[in-house]
Design a binder for these strands. Structure first.
Length: 716
DNA sequence: TCAATCCGTATC
DNA sequence: ATACGGATTGAC
């Protein structure tokens, strides 16, 4: 029922009129009379009986005979709704693009060319849909629309779709052993090429000891699950294309999600090179309604075995799904901003869990969530050995805590430390391009110790301290306590200051520091995909770094201070993710590739960059989060609304044992925000409790809404 | 005692 | 939204 009210978030039974007996199949859109109104709905299941004792009404009409909602997706949507304390209707709105009638009739159902027939059993589920119901349809219109338990209530999966080691181990899905030898040890000291696909079935997965085994498992139709740390200079899109190709060769379909249009273009090109044209579709919100629906239909009808896209594709139907993949899962674009705010990584992992598909979570960096997958044994890591890492990695140097500015006056005005200036000059002399990464402005400035720059955290709850306006007394953004007598735990310092980002001007100033060198910028307004080799400066904001054919001679990471002091739980992780993404575009040290990061080399994220060891950092990060009780070690939900509404919801909620309330802190005007924290083992119970409580309120027609967000991207 | 009305709740 | 049931109220 397309009614986003929590207390109506369940199936309702309707009679199927005999003229719709054939066409009203599960997965179709229908119109029904509900509480005196005509509303849209989903036909979830046909059944011969109904548990409802009241009188049943007939379906009003069939919107279209196209069964757009695949059974697998119906189950997935229910699981996602449950995980995020949301409604099925909301998730289905995200999962199935709006119907485009003209497209639907234009694109007459061609015979499925790509993949062996499949569908209801998408993947390998024996228990998918119950009661297809012929009988009811033919004779009397007494069939019912009822998904009820079949698709609904995913057995309490403990922590939900996330890593739940116990339930994760299935015969077919056991992570492929990272078998040791076999692969060429004497890899020639060849440069990582920044373009091009290697010959051989394993492609360049050979650079990772367990890589070939992963590909073999995919090609063998098995379901390995991997967290992949890409080497510097890695052509990740080609590797993804190879993994997808292996999956298709193994007789399955694949789905890959990337963060933005640029990554999508790259993957699209790589996939076309490997699979040939017409074997995949791309799905993104940017396509527009008609093309989006067309691509969706092609996938739904099984005409292509592979779907790639941005997060709009995370629910895409894929016949015989054999692999779900996500690249750079730490990018916050993977978080859906519409209710119930699901994250692409979690959705894809849920799909892997539900269908027994393989999973690939890759990036130059590793998120704490990915680390959790590794540590719980849900997935195996695919990493290169240290010797290979060293061979591929540029030379990374920190400028130290108090960077000495370059002597050159022009460089000094650009706030360029001498180390950075020299690295850039050397690269330009060698006729190599130089990448300069500067943070975008607009970050909420956190406060940190003036002396040692340690970010200031609340002594009570470890939340971030902030200076509200001109007021000199810092307060906690989580629990609202005022930290009047704050003393830095590191150095005892008592003075705090806000981090201020000055970014844009740097770009212009850089041009002056290197007269005669062409300067290009890539950022929000205009994102460059690729720049030519040869001497030149490229100033880019994080995420907008163009690639260049031979790799950059030098990469400068400026104003890292602003990244590191963001008022965000993930500041360190995010800084490292952005640095690695930029540094990965540099040539290896053996080719003179250099990276200069303007930061203190003692800081953990900087250390991780120097060593090029994202796994090590992720392990530290996850350990910290465990200690502090932060996600993903704990599960959190935020409740936002007027104080009365939030209190009302909490009063109605039967929170699980051990639930902790943090806050309130002021949110938008007249609004406040509460955080609820539970151990991971209570995650499902928390979501259930919040959803029921929301149901109590919608049933009562409470006027003031409360926004419930499980795993909010930003905790403050 | 009965009907008009109010309120809360369910909605196939 | 609207329809319904049960409780409440007020007039006969």
């Amino acid at each position: 029922m397309d009614v986003p009210l929590a207390h109506l978030d369940r199936p309702f039974d309707y009679l199927v009129p005999s003229e719709l007996a054939e066409t009203a199949q599960p997965g179709t859109r229908v119109r029904v009379r509900f509480a005196g109104q005509l509303v849209d709905g989903w036909l979830l299941e046909r059944a011969e009986t109904s548990a409802h004792d009241g009188r049943l009404t007939y379906l009003e009409r069939l919107v279209s005979p196209e069964p757009v909602l695949a059974p697998e997706i119906a189950r997935l949507a229910r699981a996602v709704a449950d995980r995020y304390a949301g409604n099925l209707a909301d998730v289905l709105r995200l999962a199935v693009p709006p119907r485009h009638a003209r497209t639907e009739s234009q694109v007459a159902a061609r015979p499925a060319a790509a993949v062996p027939p499949s569908d209801a059993a998408a993947g390998s589920r024996p228990d998918a849909a119950v009661a297809p119901s012929e009988v009811a349809a033919g004779s009397r219109p007494d069939a019912a629309v009822a998904p009820s338990d079949a698709a609904g209530a995913p057995a309490d999966v403990g922590a939900g779709p996330g890593p739940a080691p116990a339930s994760a181990t299935r015969a077919g899905a056991a992570p492929e052993r990272a078998d040791g030898p076999a692969e060429p040890a004497g890899e020639p000291a060849s440069r990582p090429d920044h373009a091009g696909v290697d010959a051989g079935p394993d492609g360049r997965w050979r650079d990772y000891p367990s890589g070939p085994a992963f590909l073999r498992a995919l090609a063998g139709g098995r379901a390995p699950r991997a967290v992949w740390s890409a080497l510097a200079g890695e052509d990740w899109a080609a590797r993804y294309a190879e993994a997808i190709e292996a999956t298709v060769r193994g007789g399955h379909g694949a789905l890959a999600v990337v963060a933005d249009a640029r990554d999508l273009d790259r993957l699209d090109a790589a996939l076309t090179a490997v699979l040939g044209p017409g074997r995949h579709v791309t799905l993104s919100a940017a396509l527009g309604p008609s093309r989006r629906y067309r691509a969706f239909l092609a996938a739904r009808r099984g005409q292509v075995p592979v779907v790639i896209g941005t997060r709009a594709a995370m629910f895409a139907p894929v016949a015989r799904l054999g692999l779900v993949a996500i690249w750079d899962d730490g990018d916050d674009l993977h978080a859906e901003p519409r209710a119930p705010y699901p994250h692409a990584r979690e959705v894809l992992l849920t799909r892997a869990q539900l269908t027994g598909a393989a999973a690939l979570v890759g990036g130059y960096a590793r998120s704490a969530e990915a680390q959790l997958l590794v540590e719980t044994g849900w997935a195996r890591e695919i990493v290169a050995d240290r010797a290979t890492v060293r061979r591929r990695t540029p030379l990374v140097t920190p400028t130290g805590d108090d960077p000495q500015l370059a002597r050159d006056p022009a460089a000094a005005t650009a706030r360029l430390p001498s180390l950075a200036w020299e690295a850039a000059r050397a690269a330009l002399r060698a006729d190599a391009p130089v990448l300069v990464q500067v943070p975008r402005r607009g970050y909420v400035p956190a406060v940190a110790c003036v002396q040692c720059r340690t970010p200031a955290r609340c002594p009570h709850c470890s939340g971030p301290l902030a200076l509200a306006g001109a007021r000199a007394i810092p307060g906690c953004r989580w629990c609202g306590r005022v930290a009047a007598a704050y003393a830095c735990p590191q150095c005892g310092g008592r003075r705090l200051r806000a981090a201020v980002v000055g970014a844009r001007r740097t770009a212009e100033e850089l041009g002056r520091a290197f007269p005669g060198v062409p300067v290009r910028t890539s950022g929000r307004d205009e994102v460059l995909g690729e720049v030519p080799g040869g001497a030149g400066l490229v100033v880019a904001t994080p995420g907008a770094e163009p690639v260049t054919a031979g790799g950059y001679g030098a990469v400068l990471l400026l104003d890292s201070w602003a990244l590191l002091t963001r008022a965000d739980l993930r500041a360190g992780e995010e800084a490292l993710r952005r640095w690695l993404a930029a540094a990965a575009l540099a040539r290896p040290a053996s080719d003179g590739g250099r990276v200069v990061v303007v930061a203190d080399g003692a800081l953990l994220p900087v250390q991780a960059l120097l060593r090029w060891d994202p796994a090590w950092f992720a392990a530290r990060e996850l350990a910290d989060r465990r200690e502090l009780g932060f996600p993903p070690a704990a599960r959190m939900a935020s409740l936002t609304g007027t104080p009365e509404a939030v209190a009302d919801l909490l009063a109605a909620a039967r929170l699980p044992d051990g639930a902790e309330l943090l806050g309130p802190v002021p949110a938008a005007e007249e609004q406040e925000r509460m955080l609820v924290r539970v151990p991971r083992s209570r995650a499902a119970a928390l979501a259930g409790a919040l959803h029921s409580a929301a149901g109590v309120r919608t049933a009562r027609k409470a006027a003031q809404p409360v926004r419930v967000q499980v795993d909010p991207l930003a905790l403050f």
